Amino acid sequence: MKAFYSFPLLFLPSLVSATPSDLTTIELDKRACTPFKNPLTNASGCCDIVSAQLFWVDILLGIGVCCPIGQVLEGFNCVTPSSGGSVCSGKAVCANKTGVDLGIKYGHCYVLLSLNNNYLGHDNALKYVVMGENPGVVFRVCGDTTTCTTSADQYVPVNGTWYMQDQMGDPNGSGFAWLGGAGDLNIVNSTDQALAMGGSSTCFGGNCAICITFPPGGAHAPCPLTPGQSHLGIAANPNSCQNFYWQEVSCRSENQLAECQISPSTAKSESVGYVAQV
């Protein structure tokens, strides 16, 4: 894995003495260099997308990580993907240690399947609904609402809390969003409105499930919908909860050139293909 690197100006051809081919190379380098800021060091530079690939952490803030072509981003690490870089067993997540954790991990991504086998997604607006017009929203379990690196790759403990980063986001926005709001819960773009979530391990039909709550309250369906459908809402009673089978999937990358799937797991970072500004 390459580390951060920079090219002194003396290696670049003088613009006065440069040949036409040299000037063409310089112009190509400019076009291929995508600026970004490292999420851990805040160092600014650019990613040479000819030999590397930029994975956005927050496209609005210009925060990203540069990985060599053929590698993907896990947490803030660039790694060679296994099995094509996808996580897709189709099995419901179970506790790693019964009574100790819930089986889901911080920094990992999941889709939620209701007990009547319908995925949680968006309706035709911004509300979260089972069997909606845009089902199967990918959620990243985050221990914080900034870099999503708190306790990365660790199991969520029993009585632990987390935030749900919506990897699809607001259809009218430009990046990831959060599950939050009040009443019928919906997509929120402000981290201040993101809701902390809790849950407990349950079992239905021989499959592991997690019954979600919104501490200090519970969770319920706040209004009637078509049979099979359900909105998410906060309940005053902390014992009220909504059951879902959690299936781990690859997270989504906000890559400018192509839509890729990534599988975040660790919190260490080394950017590659990076050219420091000089």
Rank of each mutant, 00 (worst) to 15 (best):
G143Y: 09
D144L: 04
A221L: 01
G175H: 14
M168I: 13
P215W: 00
T145R: 15
S230N: 04
F176N: 13
C223A: 10
S230C: 06
L225W: 02
G199P: 03
P171L: 08
T149K: 13
P224R: 03
H231Q: 08
A182K: 14
T161S: 12
D192S: 15
F214D: 01
G217T: 11
D170Y: 13
I212K: 11
I234N: 09
D192K: 15
P215E: 00
Q193A: 05
N186G: 09
G183S: 08
N189M: 00
A182W: 10
S174Y: 06
V158D: 00
G183T: 13
S230Y: 02
G199V: 01
G233I: 05
A221R: 11
D192T: 15
G181R: 06
S174K: 12
M164S: 15
P216A: 02
A235K: 03
T161Y: 07
N172M: 06
G173I: 07
A177L: 05
W162H: 13
N186H: 15
P222Q: 10
W162P: 09
F176A: 12
A194R: 04
C142Y: 09
Q167W: 07
A221D: 05
A182F: 13
T213G: 04
N159R: 15
C203R: 12
N239W: 03
N207F: 02
N186P: 01
S174T: 14
G217E: 02
L195Y: 01
V156G: 10
T226S: 09
T146Y: 07
V158C: 03
N172D: 07
W162V: 05
Y155H: 12
C142V: 01
A236D: 10
N239H: 11
N189G: 11
G181N: 11
C148W: 07
G217A: 05
G181I: 09
H231D: 05
Q229Y: 02
M168C: 09
N237F: 04
H220Y: 00
G175D: 13
A194M: 01
S151Y: 12
P227G: 06
N159W: 03
T191N: 03
S230G: 01
C211E: 04
L179C: 10
A235I: 04
T146N: 11
M168Y: 13
T161R: 15
P227C: 03
F214E: 01
G160V: 05
A152E: 07
Q165Y: 08
Q165P: 07
L195Q: 01
G160W: 06
A235Y: 01
S190T: 15
A209Y: 08
Y155N: 13
T150G: 00
T150S: 06
G198E: 03
C203Y: 06
L179I: 12
Q165N: 12
W178N: 04
M197F: 10
W162S: 11
C142G: 03
P238T: 03
C203G: 00
Q193Y: 02
C223M: 10
Q229R: 13
P222C: 08
N189E: 02
S230A: 15
N186A: 08
T150R: 07
G160I: 08
P227I: 06
I210R: 13
I212R: 11
A152V: 14
D184F: 01
F214L: 03
G198M: 03
N239R: 14
D166T: 08
P222M: 09
W178D: 02
F176L: 06
